[in-house]
Amino acid sequence: MSLEPETENTIREDVPDRPRGYVVGSAPDSIEREIGHDDFDPVGTLVLIFGYFLILVVMWVFMYFVEFLGRGMTVIG
């Protein structure tokens, strides 16, 4: 008995329509639903980016005004 099964034997009978070169897990190549450019609406991504933006602003304000300017005895001349 060979460890490598013959390719011919691994073709499953229950999945009939796999074309040559099909990658398992790949998206179907037929368009299921077509939307316009601005109809694509990734609100979650927008919220995530806005959150990052807010963190950046808060960290900058804290770093400059509290940690730097609030550090006492700043060079003024």
């Binding site: 400059y64 700043t74 060079v75 003024i76």
Partner: peptide, 14 residues
């Protein structure tokens, strides 16, 4: 903010 530091808060470089 850096401009404010230089003009408003008067931070200078050595």
């Amino acid at each position: 903010t850096v401009s404010y530091g230089a003009i408003g808060a008067g931070v200078e470089m050595i």
